[in-house]
Simulated assay, not measured.
Amino acid sequence: MRNNFDAVRLGLALTVVFCHLAVLSEVAVFQPFLRFLSADFAVKGFFVISGCLVTRSYLRSQSGWDYAEKRVRRIYPAYAVTIGLAWLIGMVATRLSVANYINQPAAYKYLAANAAFLNFLQPTLPGVFEQHAVPALNASLWTIKVELCLYCCVPLLVGLFRRIGAYPTAILAFCVALLWEEALPHVPHITPRMVTELARQFPGVIHFFTLGAVFTMVEHKLGPKLGWIALVSCVAFFLLRHHRTGSLIEPLSYASSVLFAATGLPLQISAGRWGDLSYGTYLVHFPIIQLFIHLGVFQWNPWLGLAALLLIILGAAFVLWHVVEKPLLKRNSHYVAAKIVNYEKGRS
């Protein structure tokens, strides 16, 4: 089946790269990125596409264990390598001596906390990026634990689809997300900043993921209508974005837009010919941007620095895919199976 999932995911990952570059570097020529691009849209778009593709993976899995193993193989090896990469970048960038750095308990707390997806417990490394606008080594990793929570919901979602139907399940997910958002400000001793942070955590984004899963379950019905749904919902969201009603339309607008781009365009963009670089790009970009800022690259020449940054990020993602991610996928993984089918077609 023709689709542009690889291209859309890579586009979303690069959107996050450009937005984070503008925020972290504070370089004036990069600030227009924040006017024309939205990291919030990109991250929520990732949740939608994950809902779609991971539900497909679950439906193709031989058992619950098979599904869980595929998810772990897909997510954790590259994630663990990225944590190690950030730790090594910290060793290069720290104001401490190497001996002092490796003797700091915080250096190992960083490894342990991030390996357990508890990034908030130790987002920084000793003596590293202390003068930066954001001193964290990799503030993008918060989404991975949310993804894992959403993966755990897939068997429940599929069960609800089969029992009460796809659309009632989507409505139920909306209710869960809205109740979470409404309840947070009433929790004692919670600050507005914590409310904002927790609102984007699980289960606050379950409706985005569920909309992607719904598309998988009823694609034969929704597919032909997806373009019109995207058009109408996007116009409605644009008109109502400053009204409370806009928050209700936003998930449908985002979901229909990215799914139409992935499945409804009349042309296919071969973004996956060199591998699936989107996950690696998302994982490694933050610490590499921080290192570039530390080295003063963007102060020397911002546009050459941007070109070098993209080259290194995509190169690192390429290596990560071919050396770590792809070799550890199961043979019945959709990506591996698709490549085998294409190879056999090429031989026939």
Rank of each mutant, 00 (worst) to 15 (best):
P192Y: 07
P192I: 07
M194Q: 15
M194R: 09
E197S: 13
L198C: 08
L198F: 14
A199I: 04
A199T: 12
A199Y: 02
R200H: 13
Q201K: 08
Q201E: 10
F202Q: 00
F202C: 03
P203H: 03
G204T: 08
V205G: 03
V205L: 12
I206Q: 03
I206T: 13
I206C: 12
F208E: 04
F209C: 01
F209W: 02
F209S: 00
T210Y: 11
L211S: 03
G212F: 01
A213V: 04
A213L: 04
A213H: 01
A213W: 02
F215G: 09
F215Q: 13
T216S: 11
T216Q: 15
M217Q: 09
M217Y: 07
V218M: 14
V218H: 12
E219H: 14
E219Q: 15
K221T: 13
K221V: 11
L222I: 15
G223P: 00
P224C: 12
P224G: 10
L226P: 08
G227Q: 05
G227C: 09
G227R: 11
W228I: 14
W228S: 13
W228Y: 14
W228C: 09
I229G: 04
I229H: 05
A230Y: 03
A230D: 05
L231K: 01
L231V: 10
L231N: 00
V232W: 10
S233L: 06
S233D: 03
C234H: 04
C234F: 09
C234K: 02
C234P: 02
V235W: 13
V235N: 06
F237N: 05
F237G: 02
F238S: 15
L239D: 02
L239T: 13
L239P: 02
L240G: 00
R241V: 09
R241Y: 11
H242Q: 10
H242V: 07
H243T: 06
R244E: 12
T245K: 00
S247H: 14
S247K: 12
S247W: 14
S247P: 01
L248R: 08
L248N: 07
L248H: 11
I249G: 00
E250C: 09
P251V: 08
P251M: 08
P251L: 07
L252G: 04
L252M: 14
Y254L: 04
Y254W: 08
S256M: 08
S256Y: 07
S256P: 05
S256A: 15
S257G: 09
L259I: 12
F260Y: 15
F260W: 15
F260V: 01
F260N: 03
A261G: 03
A262M: 05
A262L: 05
T263S: 06
T263V: 05
T263A: 02
G264R: 04
G264F: 08
L265I: 07
P266R: 12
L267S: 06
L267V: 13
L267P: 00
I269A: 08
I269R: 03
S270N: 15
S270L: 11
A271F: 15
G272V: 07
G272M: 06
G272R: 01
R273I: 14
R273C: 13
